[in-house]
Design a protein around this nucleic acid. Structure first.
Ligand SMILES: [Mn+2]
Ligand SMILES: [Mn+2]
Ligand SMILES: [Zn+2]
Ligand SMILES: [Zn+2]
Lengths: 139, 139
DNA sequence: TACTATAATAGAATTATTCCAAGATAATAA
DNA sequence: TTATTATCTTGGAATAATTCTATTATAGTA
C-alpha cells in the first residue's frame, strides 16, 4: 500500500481512499476484472462507492498508461493492471482470461496491401481455448 | 441475389425479404458494419425493419458459421460476412477496420505454462494503426 | 488552517443488445 | 392451389454496460 501511495503521489494523480482501494485491488491482479468486479470488491470496504468512480479511475489509469482495456470478451470490457505488451487467452466455456507473455512481434509482419494503407502501431492477440476445469466438466 | 437465394434456401434458413436485403448488403461487404450500419441501410428499403430482425439475422448467420463477430472495437460489435480465418487492423483515428489475410498460425506457438492450462482452439489478431486519410489530416 | 483543483456521489441519460408477445408469412405438403 | 405450421418480423419494453451531470466533499498545497 505504501508502495502504491509513493508511486502515484505527486504525479497529479489525487489519491483518495476509494482510489487507493481500487489500486490495491488491481495491484498484481491477473484476473482481468470487469468494472462490476472492481465495484463489487470496493463496495465491501466503501459501501457508497459508485460506478462513476470506478470508471473514472480506470480511465485515469488508462490515460496514464498504467492499465489496459481488454476487448477479448464480446460481452464487456475487462481491465488489466499490467500495461506491458502481452496477449490473452479466454476460455470459451467459463470466460476465464489468462495471460500470454510472449513477444510475437517478429512474426507478425503484415502484407504489403495492408502496410500501404495503414501505418501499424501495435497488435494484440486473442487466443481462445478451453481451461482445465471446463475440460473436466464436459468429459 | 439469385445466388444468395440459392445458397440459403432449403437449409432451414427461412428467406424473408428483410433477410435477403441483409444478405445482399453483407455479400462481399468488407466494411465490417455494425448492427446500426446494417439497420440504417436496410431501413432505406424496408422502413419498418427492426433492430430485433437485424440482431436475429446476424445471430442466425453466426450460428451457421456464415458470419463473424469482431471485437476489435471496444465501443461496439462489428460483423464480418467473411467467415474464413483472417485478422483485422483498426485505425485509431477514424475507427476504420481493414482485413489482414495472412495465416500466422505457424508462428503463434504458446508458452508451456499456457498450454498446460488451456486447450487452444483458435486465435485472432487485432492490429492497430493509422490509415492513409488520417495521416494526411494530422500532418 | 484555508484554498482550490480535483474527486466522489446519486441518479439520470445514453447506447448496445436482448427479450417478449402478437401478428405475419415462407416453406411444405396435400 | 390451398391449408398448415414452424419460423420470422415487429414495436416496445427490459437489461446491461457505460457515460454524463450537478452537487457535495476532500486531498494536496500554500
Ligand atoms: Mn493480462
Ligand atoms: Mn474481415
Ligand atoms: Zn473454463
Ligand atoms: Zn483513419
Amino acid at each position: 500500500m505504501e508502495r502504491i501511495v509513493r508511486k502515484y503521489r505527486g504525479k497529479g494523480f489525487k489519491l483518495t481512499p476509494q482510489r487507493i482501494a481500487i489500486l490495491k485491488f488491481l495491484e498484481g491482479n491477473t484476473n482481468h476484472p470487469t468494472a462490476d468486479d472492481i465495484y463489487t470488491e470496493i463496495k465491501k470496504k466503501y459501501p457508497t462507492v459508485s460506478f462513476a468512480t470506478v470508471y473514472n479511475t480506470v480511465q485515469a489509469l488508462r490515460d496514464r498508461g498504467e492499465l489496459l482495456e481488454i476487448t477479448i470478451d464480446p460481452e464487456r470490457k475487462h481491465f488489466d493492471p499490467n500495461p506491458s505488451a502481452h496477449h490473452h487467452i479466454m476460455c470459451t466455456g467459463c470466460g476465464k482470461i489468462g495471460d500470454v507473455f510472449f513477444d510475437y512481434s517478429e512474426s507478425l509482419g503484415l502484407p504489403e496491401e495492408v502496410t500501404r494503407e495503414f501505418a501499424v502501431t501495435g497488435n494484440h492477440i486473442d487466443f481462445y481455448g478451453v481451461c482445465t476445469r471446463c475440460r473436466a466438466k464436459t468429459s
